[in-house]
Design a protein around this nucleic acid. Structure first.
Lengths: 355, 355
DNA sequence: AAGCGGATAGCAAGCGCTTTCTATCCAAGA
DNA sequence: TCTTGGATAGAAAGCGCTTGCTATCCGCTT
């Protein structure tokens, strides 16, 4: 019922071995023979049995991409870029690799389960995107799992998260410079004259959250604003998930705590959108009454009104590079770690305070 | 070097068959034996060999999801919803299925290539999302491919595209009512008093594009606006890809052709954002000088300023249902086709014309 | 007491492909 | 003319798992 290699072989009057070699193309086969085989493949509408190949060859052409939330363009852009570079049908290489996008939803267990599933599939590579959870136990579990994957020949690439602690594994890491991005953003606000700045942070225990927040506080501290007569920094920080709603609610909370804020920095652009909505609803004009800034520079940020001041992360470039690293098309950076810069994008949502 | 089933069997002092049965859980195994086996699995850190299982069992637990652009939330939301329902680690079922998200980039060849790749992997199901290309040759090729997949036991689900012509295959289809959504949107504008309405359409030859445009023209025709003294409808329609930039450029073009437009309808929200940017740049206020409307109701639309009037498509619900259909968790709709309604969301970007 | 049948477990035959090792063939060198 | 070796093609041994069929063990029935 299903056509197999031997069927093709029979029709082309060659051995199965030859058909396999024609299909894999890494062994000399006479042109005439190849022709005959290809014609037979075509005639019979033959499709290779992937599992059988993978079993026999002990490798697969699946590349796993772990993301927190595929519906979030932050991850969608990276995932798309990875996929475009791994040599699948969409890629330049025109290979046959397929991307398996795994949605962890930010859950540590799912992250591990997916890693196991990918190990089970003998994935050719695994790309972990986005910030990592800072729980030591979980970090250790992930490291262990990755080490085992690497042992089995799976390439590991981290994209947008800090390098592994025990980076003994041959892991390539592309890390975003969230801290200096955060610092520069807040410096920009300080330069404009803001002194009372609210911060809507991401969820606790995420590296991304912490680094951005640290950058923010570094800037405040450096300017002497952090400590002196500025109330408690903790007081001006509210944590929540990376969602619009969180930005909305956190902003209302901040306004309650400190009605005299002249600026609000959000953990990312999505959160900033929610924050803006809340401010607008409160009758505050942006940036006249209060400035707002985001992070990531997602595509919609430039279309916000006023356009959102934010920190641009080259998500597409990073994803593409991660894809190349995953396939070995690009050599890993020296030391295994490359830091990807963040660029401040000053737009209409920030202006000098007027009070 | 790698642990196999027999290693586990040896350690648990049972036969490989028994280990397999414990792991697959569809055969009676005495509790004590099961215990012993599971302990051995744990001790040895055993991970099943996916390709080997798939080969022996002639099935896999991969579910393919074809999308035009994973970086676009329209597809991201659907893909995420599908994945959450197929019983992978993220799903309620907690099964072991994995989603393979395939980015076609809208290219017909890639669509076919991915379908072949999924066939090769013996995918358990394939979900095709978004509008289809209207090229008869390509449609036939896809149909043929799907028929072959279905033959091989792969479930086929179409989500957000019209049913197949020759729907002999056991294909479940969830189709969006783009036409009536488009009609209602334009009726809304007509009711407000608009008569000169520009339309920024999607790419030619896409079902989505055509249906939305037809809805628009139906509404115009029904009101008598389409023909009488309203210039050529063609004149007021510009096609382009579903991107912000396209919306921007098409809007400038429309303004050039007909400076007296009082409203612009965009093919989707992303395009509407670009259109708004162009209008704003031209010094036109929304909705005072000109109304703007989109389609899809993507998350950012409510945060546009003014909030975007649009047509809401229940992307998440549709994706979730598609996921359930893909796993057989839900029975296919009668006739194999279910139409999913579109809801008009009137917001701030549309108002009566003032000229 | 002999017979039966349900509940478990094992045997062994593949699943369809890759790949090592061998066998052939033929042109060119000695 | 005989040898030598590069270029191709084939034989066959798995890869690690699933599963139909068979074997065994017991507690009961008759």
């Amino acid at each position: 019922m299903t056509v197999t290699l031997s069927d093709v072989a029979a029709r082309a009057q060659v051995s199965p071995a030859t058909v396999s070699r024609v299909l894999n193309g890494n062994y000399p086969v006479a042109a005439a023979t190849r022709e005959r085989v290809l014609r037979a493949v075509d005639d019979l509408d033959y499709v290779l049995n992937g599992p059988a190949s993978s079993l026999a060859a002990a490798t697969s052409d699946l590349v796993g991409i772990l993301v927190n939330d595929i519906a979030d363009p932050f991850f969608g852009i990276m995932a798309g870029a990875v996929q475009s570079e791994i040599g699948g049908p969409g890629g330049r290489a025109g290979g046959e690799r397929m991307a398996v996008v795994c949605n962890t939803g930010g859950s540590p267990e799912r992250e591990l389960t997916y890693l196991t599933l990918l190990q089970r599939q003998r994935a050719a590579a695994v790309v972990l995107t986005g910030g990592a959870l800072e729980d030591p136990a979980h970090a250790a579990a992930v490291s262990a799992k990755l080490a085992r994957l690497a042992d089995a020949g799976t390439r590991i690439v981290l994209c947008g998260r800090p390098p592994l602690e025990d980076s003994d594994a041959a892991t390539a890491t592309l890390t975003f410079d969230n801290r200096s991005g955060g610092r520069r953003l807040t410096e920009h606000l300080l330069t404009l004259g803001h002194r009372r700045i609210g911060y809507v942070a991401g969820p606790m225990e995420r590296t991304t959250t912490r680094h951005r927040l640290e950058g923010h506080r570094d800037a405040l501290a450096a300017s002497g604003t952090g400590s002196a007569g500025n109330g408690d920094q903790e007081e001006l920080t509210v944590h929540g998930p990376y969602t619009r709603q969180s930005g909305y609610e956190a902003t209302l909370e901040l306004l309650r705590r400190a009605p005299d804020l002249t600026a609000i920095v959000a953990a990312n652009d999505t959160v900033a959108l929610g924050a803006s909505a809340a401010l607008r609803e409160r009758g505050l004009r942006i940036p006249d009454d209060i400035s707002v800034a985001g992070f990531d520079d997602l595509p919609f940020s430039v279309d916000a009104v006023p356009a959102l001041t934010t920190v641009r992360l080259p998500l597409h470039e990073a994803g593409a590079r991660a894809g190349r690293l995953a396939t070995g098309a690009e050599a890993p950076p020296p030391g295994g770690v490359a830091t990807i810069g963040a660029e401040l994008m000053v737009r209409g949502s920030t202006a000098p305070p007027c009070r």
